[in-house]
Amino acid sequence: MSDAENIKQRIEAAIPGAHAEVEDYTGGGDHFRATVTAEAFAGLGRVAQHRLVYEILGAEIGGAIHALSLTTRTPSQTNSSQTN
């Protein structure tokens, strides 16, 4: 299992109903880009949404995971703007 797949599965397991897309954008296994869509984000500010995801990965953020570029959305936001 690739690291990106592992991160995806952990996020989806930890946040009920979440859909995560995770990409290892350097191929080096330590820089990832993730877009997480979850109803659980509704009503939360962006900081709280990101914290939910960071908490799943714990100390790996800044450790084995050098960078995790994160976009969080609720299902109703998925059709809105896409960032690079």
Binding site: R46, V47, H50, Y54, I61, A67, S69, L70, T83
Partner: peptide
Amino acid sequence: WPTIPQLFVGGELIGGCDI
């Protein structure tokens, strides 16, 4: 908040680079 950079405005964490 685990990552750097961190931007604060008016004493509140606004977020990191993505936000």
